[in-house]
Every structure is written in structure tokens, then in C-alpha cells.
Design a protein around this nucleic acid. Structure first.
Length: 658
DNA sequence: ACCAAAGGTAAGGGTAATTCTCTTGT
DNA sequence: TACAAGAGAATTACCCTTACCTTTGG
């Protein structure tokens, strides 16, 4: 995050009434009345009245330990002469009597100071602990012990901790510490970065190793690799480190891959004989009888050994997802069960999905094949929501209740909170949207271009006045196409979309993919004399815009919208399509991993200058979060760094889901 | 030599996502 | 009969915990 070079901490004065909203990344957006921005725009533009705040909850998991909360607000100037700025808000929980301001960005030696103060340093995160007893002892003492999959918040915190550690020591690459330094040199590394995480050190250690091991996340094994792996296995046995090194894979990766290949393994459909043998073996090893529900305490390695023709994974999967249920007289799963599942989960009234006890939930439910299976069923339901990953659990759950309980005809249509468009075509994607506002600024620069996009056509109906739905797009750039006023919208995922800019008297950005593509994007903005600035992003059924304008529906003239729609159509026909799906996907997953690994991502708020944008409009998007690097085939010089917008929906669609 | 802590490995249970295959509808 | 779409089964890359081993430093 961009909290590094903060010159000073300032106090936020409230300006009349301010409103906070929170986006899906946990960033807080501050909205305040536009009454103090009169002389801000030197080039005749209006400063957006939204400031992005990052709420960094340092000890959020343990609120009972603190007695008060203090928020400090930090402003981050972006560039000289540019009035827009980013605001970083750090929430610091204070203990009794502690009034010392602890600004996250002003770290001198925060790691140690945090430790001295006893802040963030739970007993759990500061010891290696490897036994169950250790865990039980600490849990009994009231310590929090987190385990299971790491949440996004935890990963963010970990990354922040690492970044801070690096900054304090002037180290660029965490891999230096992890893989090159001696134990002595990195002495306090793991302790420091474990601060605030209620996980034992070894868990943090594992996680970090995996994250920065570039032999991890290599992807699917090729046939060649498999063959080589078999050879190496013969030669080196279970020396995974050696095998991995020879193969350019991590030790755990080759170990895991070997688990899947057994010389005697069958693939495909199970024969009746195999099923019979599996059941026999499971019951024998667990001391149970046919008809008993057995979902736990099975040694699958032993089972596989005895079954002979299947791997442990295959055995486990077959048993938990089918055979046990079949044998114990289970019934078929129905649509009503879908509804029931969502309902029952809602009744649990938990804040976090991890708190769901699937064993209990699946108890006495004849159509549930196993707790594990039920969980995967939940996943299937959940994934009907395109942006489920971005939604807070309660919101997702509420939305799912609506979706699941809706009449069949309503399903498979776009489900959008704050939706638009009476005539938007139904999409196969069910997308739940929570209203999120993002600060998007269009700075109107004098233009020599004539206005474009004037004609008539279909009508887009906007929801009147009320807050529209906001989504964040993947990081993107404007790339000049050679045609004056036309740019490519270049996303971080090798997606080029033609973009037309015109700036007089309004700014209109229009982008569209091929007519048939569901990825059609309309980027539309209208600005009139220092007044309202609106960026409107229309992905099927999705609108992105700032909420500067209170009278949105009034200011957006019908004709302008119509014109835009027409433009999109026209451009669509001459649209180019780039690389194939697979290639894109590969690139994408690479990006995702890069994003996870790269700490010092380019700052979003670089100055926008020259590079073909001298005329037209400048789109600026202050954003603190991860910046996905562009593709090599785009010259960086000609690319305008506009900032990072990540659109969960777009991402989901790009990922090819649903 | 001993001990404790830190660092590291192997095994194995598990998750999340993709790919394959079968079924159903047109 | 051919095809498409959807659902469910199978597969797999990766994740996490546990138990145990090794190294290091006092």
C-alpha cells in the first residue's frame, strides 16, 4: 500500500456532514459536500469530493484487548499541481492510558516498538509451537489460535508486515531474506511479520516460503515432467527437495504430484468391484459396518493401499462424495435442498464462512453426502454469484437467499443492486453487487478534438438519483491508437478495447469489445463546466461512476446516453480481438500470482502526461491497491498509468467462471 | 555434553478449481 | 442423429497441520 512516503500526519476536519462508505477491499471512501473546492481546479476542473481512505485495523481480531480506538488520517499528495490526493486512514486501537499516536506510515522501528508495547504480539504468533498440546494450552488460556485457509485480511496484514520490515531495513526483495540470509541475519524476521496474526510462527513461515518460492505456482505438469518425475522418483525415492530441484518445482509440489500417480492407478469411472472393495476396506479399517456414516478418521493412504487400483485422493473423493451416501441410504439432492442450505447457513448467524460447522450442518440430512460434500455444494451455490469473492459473507448470504428463493425465471439474470437499464440483455451471470463508490476523477483538459458521439439510438435508463453501483476495474491504461481521440483501453490482462475520447463540451469515453462479446465495456463520462463529473462503466448491467453528481439522472441527458450507446455499436463492428482465451487465462493467472508476490507495485497515482494525451481528457484514478503490470507487447511509454481499478465481476468473467 | 529454540522435512488430510463425461433437451 | 447445455464425477494443483528431525547457540 502507498503508506510509505507520507510526509506528515494531518488531522481530518469534518466538513459539515461526511459520509463513509467502504469498498470491497476494505477501503473507506469519504464523501463530503462540495463546498470547499471552489478554487481548486486550476485547469478548470473540479476536484472530486471523495477521498479514499484505507482503514488499517491493526488489531481487529482482538477487540476486547483494547479500550479505545483512534483514527488518524494521512493525506498523500500525488503530484505537484494536482489537487487530488489520497487519504490514508489508519485505525489504531489504543489501550488504557496510551495516547501516543502510532501512525502506521511513520515507522521508525515499528516492529520492535510494537513488541515493546505488547501490541499485536500474541503468544500464539511469537512461538514456533508444533504440537497439539501447545495449541490446546494456549487456547485454554484464552489465546486466539487461527488456522485453516488464510483470509484476504490476514494475507494483507502479512504483506504489510513484510513490506514494513523491508522498508525499515532497506531491503528490496523479501526473497533475499527468506532464501539468502542466514538464520542469524534474519533473526527477527518471522517474529516481526507474524505480528497481529493469531497463527503460530511455523504457519507464517510456511506461508511465506510458499509465497516467495518461485518454483511454486508453476502450474500443470506436462507429460514430459511427469515422465521425468517418475524417473527421479525411482532414483531419489522420497527426497522431495532433490527431485523438486531437478524438476524446477518446489519439494511439496513434486511430493503432492507423486501422491497422485500410482503405477497401479486406474482413471475414469469406478467399476463395481472397485467400489465394493473401497467400501469393504473403509469399513474394515474404521471398524464400521455397511450403512454407517463414515466421514472422518479414515487413513486414506491405507485405504488406497488396500484398494490397490486407486490413489488416496480418488478413494477419499469417491467415498465422501458418493459411495458412503449411497450405502447409507441417502436421498437425492433437490432444489429445495439448495434453498435449505442457504437458509440454514443464514440461521447460523455467523459473520464468517469459516465459522460454519459443516459436521453439525450436515447432521440428519439424508441428501447430504458428507460434510465435505456439503461444503462443496455451498461452493457451487456461491459461485453462481460472479463476484462472490468480493462480497462480505453476510451480503453474499443475503443475496443468495434472494437468488435461491427467486422463481426459476428470475435466476440466471443479472442480479444487481442498484442496477440500471430497462433493456439490458439478460446475462447468464448472476452478479450480486453491493453499492461501492470509488474515487474516479476526470480532469478536463482543453481539447482540440471536436465532440463525437452525437446521434440517437436506444435508451439507457438509469436509476434516478440514488447511489449507483460501483465496481472497480482491473488496472488499465489508455494507449493511443494513432487515430486522434481514440485510445485503447488496456487492462492488465492483455485486453485492448477501443476507446474514443472527446472532450467538448462533455467528455465521453466509450469502449466496447466485439458486439457479441459479453465483455463489452462502455466507459462513459460526462462532465460539464466544473460541475458534476461522472464516469460510467457499463459491464452487462453494471454501472461505474462517481457519485459527485447528486442529480445524476438530470445531468445525464437522455440524448447523451443514447449517443453513447450508438457509439458503442458503431465501434463494436470494427473491433479487434486479441489473443486466444487460453493464452489470456495463462497470462491472467500469472498476473494474479505476480500480484501476490510483488510488493513494490507501481504507484497508481503517477502523473499523467504527454504520451498522446495532450488533448482530450485525463482520467485519473487514485487507488492504493495492487497494480497489475501491463503486457510486454505494449510500449510503456505509450501507456498512461491511470491507476488501479479492479472489477470483481470483470475478473470473474475473465477467469472464465460461469 | 546438554538443552531449548529455531528451522526444516515428510506425510497426509484437505480445499478450490478445472476438466472430463454423461444426461437431457431441442 | 446431431448438437448444445448443464450437471455431476473425476482430477489435480495447491494449501495446511502434524509429527518428527536437524541445526544452532548458549
Amino acid at each position: 500500500m502507498n503508506t510509505g512516503d507520507v510526509p506528515a500526519t494531518v488531522t481530518l476536519e469534518s466538513v459539515n456532514s461526511v459520509t463513509f462508505t467502504q469498498d470491497t477491499d476494505g477501503n473507506i471512501i469519504l464523501h463530503c459536500p462540495q463546498n470547499d473546492g471552489e478554487d481548486l481546479g486550476s485547469d478548470g476542473t473540479t476536484e472530486p469530493v471523495h477521498k479514499r481512505l484505507r482503514l488499517s485495523d491493526e488489531d481487529g481480531e482482538d477487540p476486547q484487548d483494547s479500550t479505545s480506538t483512534e483514527y488518524s488520517v494521512v493525506t498523500l499528495p500525488i503530484t505537484e499541481g494536482d489537487e487530488s490526493f489520497e487519504v490514508t486512514m489508519t485505525a489504531t486501537e489504543m489501550r488504557d492510558g496510551e495516547l501516543e499516536s502510532d501512525d502506521l506510515s511513520e515507522t521508525t522501528d515499528r516492529d520492535s516498538s510494537a513488541q515493546k508495547k505488547g501490541k499485536d504480539v500474541s503468544a500464539v504468533s511469537q512461538a514456533w509451537f508444533t504440537t497439539k498440546e501447545d495449541k490446546d494450552t494456549l487456547v485454554n488460556k484464552g489465546h486466539k489460535w487461527k488456522q485453516g485457509m488464510w483470509s484476504k485480511e490476514e494475507i494483507d496484514l502479512l504483506m504489510n508486515n513484510i513490506e514494513r520490515y523491508l522498508k525499515n531495513r532497506g531491503i528490496r526483495d523479501p526473497a533475499e531474506i527468506i532464501f539468502e540470509m542466514s538464520k542469524e541475519e534474519r533473526k527477527d524476521f518471522y517474529r516481526s511479520i507474524a505480528c497481529g496474526l493469531n497463527r503460530p510462527l511455523f504457519a507464517v513461515y510456511r506461508r511465506v516460503l510458499r509465497m516467495y518460492d518461485n518454483r511454486n505456482h508453476v502450474g500443470k505438469y506436462t507429460d514430459e515432467e511427469i515422465n521425468k518425475l517418475k524417473e527421479l522418483r525411482q532414483k531419489h525415492g522420497n527426497d522431495w527437495a532433490t527431485i523438486g530441484a531437478a524438476l524446477g518445482r518446489s519439494a511439496s509440489s513434486v511430493k503432492d504430484r507423486c501422491r497422485l500417480m500410482k503405477d497401479t492407478c486406474n482413471t475414469g469411472k469406478w467399476t463395481e468391484e472397485e467400489e465394493r472393495r473401497l467400501a469393504e476396506v473403509v469399513h474394515e479399517l474404521t471398524g464400521t459396518e455397511v450403512g454407517d456414516v463414515v466421514t472422518q478418521g479414515v487413513s486414506w493412504a491405507s485405504v488406497a493401499e488396500l484398494v490397490g487400483t486407486r490413489s488416496e485422493k480418488q478413494c477419499r473423493s469417491k467415498w465422501l462424495n458418493y459411495l458412503n451416501w449411497k450405502q447409507s441410504g441417502g436421498t437425492e439432492w433437490t432444489k429445495e435442498d439448495d434453498i435449505n442450505l442457504v437458509r440454514r447457513i443464514a440461521e447460523l448467524d455467523v459473520d464468517d464462512e469459516n465459522e460454519i460447522n459443516w459436521d453439525i450442518l450436515s447432521g440428519g440430512w439424508s441428501s447430504v453426502r458428507s460434510p465435505q460434500w456439503l461444503r462443496s455444494k455451498w461452493w457451487t451455490i456461491k459461485r453462481q454469484v460472479a463476484n462472490h469473492k468480493e462480497l462480505p459473507f453476510p451480503v453474499l448470504l443475503k443475496g443468495l437467499q434472494d437468488v435461491v428463493e427467486a422463481p426459476p425465471s428470475a435466476i440466471n439474470k443479472v442480479v444487481v443492486v442498484g442496477s440500471r437499464s430497462a433493456n439490458a440483455s439478460p446475462s447468464p451471470v448472476t452478479a450480486l453487487q453491493i453499492p461501492v463508490q470509488i474515487p474516479v476523477q476526470i480532469t478536463h483538459v482543453s481539447s482540440s478534438d471536436g465532440a463525437s458521439g452525437t446521434s440517437d439510438s436506444e435508451t439507457i435508463t438509469l436509476n434516478s438519483g440514488a447511489l449507483q453501483t460501483f465496481e472497480l476495474l482491473p488496472s488499465f491504461h489508455l494507449q493511443p491508437t494513432g487515430t486522434p481521440g481514440t485510445y485503447f483501453l488496456q487492462t492488465g490482462t492483455n485486453q485492448s478495447l477501443p476507446l474514443t475520447l472527446s472532450a467538448n463540451p462533455t467528455v465521453t469515453l466509450t469502449a466496447a469489445a466485439s458486439p457479441s462479446s459479453p465483455d463489452q465495456i462502455i466507459l462513459h463520462s460526462l462532465t460539464t463546466d466544473n460541475e458534476n463529473v461522472t464516469v460510467q462503466m457499463s459491464h452487462p448491467g453494471i454501472i461505474i461512476q462517481t457519485v459527485t453528481s447528486e442529480d445524476l439522472s438530470d445531468s445525464l441527458g437522455q440524448s447523451e446516453l443514447e449517443a453513447e450507446q450508438e457509439l458503442v455499436k458503431e465501434e463494436s463492428s470494427e473491433n479487434q480481438n486479441n489473443s486466444g482465451e487460453d493464452e489470456q487465462n495463462e497470462e491472467r493467472s500469472k498476473d494474479i500470482h505476480e500480484g501476490e508476490k510483488t510488493l513494490d507495485s507501481p504507484k497508481a497515482e503517477e502523473t499523467v502526461e504527454s504520451s498522446g494525451m495532450g488533448e482530450g481528457a485525463v482520467l485519473m484514478v487514485p487507488s492504493p491497491s495492487s497494480f497489475i503490470p501491463t503486457n510486454e507487447d505494449i510500449s510503456t511509454d505509450s501507456v498512461l498509468p491511470l491507476g488501479t481499478l479492479t472489477d470483481p465481476i470483470l475478473q470473474n468473467q475473465e477467469e472464465g467462471s460461469d
